[in-house]
């Protein structure tokens, strides 16, 4: 059975659909890129997969014994109240809550995991800083570290590289690539189509037309060629 099965899923708000029904499967070890224009419904899809909002109709089925607490998530936007006192370490560690169950404290392994995640995102020196006082890119890296702490089997990232400088962006892709090689399943929303065709095993294109294809198929498909060309012109 697939890790995730999306069955005739209609996305929308207050039972108003924004897209045609979507069907696809994510298997263990897949690296799925979701691409599409602004406002096409990528974030909505991810939030629906996570049960953060209800679908208009259709189903999201978790298989392979996947449990919600084995999923890491990086939201596109995190609205944190003004003045929220939270240090970087506290935020990153809170990712470990996913597996903590009822345990009231963090274990040595949790702290080690958080330390490594922070190292990987180059925020070790920010550990004691207040989250609110960081730059946008720094905050993004903190939340990425938190997502890394949370992910057991599946990692969902909503535009993880937005706001990151080119060096960290490259390292981020390498890091996710490594984790993927080690068996982590990744679903990533991105406008970076060149990274998509470089790293993805599968690509889901949403918009006027919805296309779910393997990387190869996508590059050969009409939508894919058109989209790739368009992006290459612009960028």
């Amino acid at each position: 059975m697939a890790l995730l099965t999306i069955k005739e899923l209609v996305l929308g708000y207050e039972s108003r659909a924004i897209l045609k029904p979507i069907d696809f499967q994510v298997n263990k070890g897949d690296y799925l890129f979701i691409v599409g224009e602004n406002g096409s419904g990528k974030s909505t899809l991810m939030r629906t997969i996570l049960h953060l909002q209800p679908p208009v109709s259709g189903q999201v089925i978790m298989g392979d014994g996947l449990k919600a607490n084995e999923i890491g998530y990086l939201p596109q936007q995190t609205l944190v109240q003004r003045d929220f006192p939270a240090s970087v370490t506290e935020v990153v560690l809170s990712g470990c809550q996913a597996h903590a169950g009822l345990r009231p404290f963090y274990t040595k392994e949790d702290r080690e995991k958080a330390r490594r995640a922070m190292e990987q995102m180059h925020i070790t020196e920010l550990a004691k800083r207040c989250y609110r006082e960081l730059s946008g890119g720094q905050q993004q890296r903190v939340l990425l570290s938190r997502a890394l702490c949370a992910s057991g089997k599946l990692l969902l990232l909503d535009e993880p590289v937005s706001g990151l400088d080119p060096k960290v962006t490259g390292e981020m892709y390498d890091l996710i690539g490594e984790l993927h090689e080690k068996g982590l399943t990744v679903i990533m929303i991105s406008h970076d189509i060149s990274a998509a065709v470089r790293y993805a095993t599968h690509i889901l294109h949403i918009g006027e037309q919805v296309l779910f294809a393997t990387n190869e198929e996508y590059r050969r498909s009409e939508i894919g060629r058109a989209f790739l060309k368009e992006v290459n012109y612009n960028g």
Partner: peptide
């Protein structure tokens, strides 16, 4: 409070993340 301190933090800081990771 002591027992749920870290959970209270996580839920207060970012509710949708907490929900997404199955809390």
């Amino acid at each position: 409070f002591l027992f749920f301190y870290h959970k209270i933090f996580c839920v207060t800081f970012d509710e949708s993340f907490a929900r997404a990771v199955g809390m």
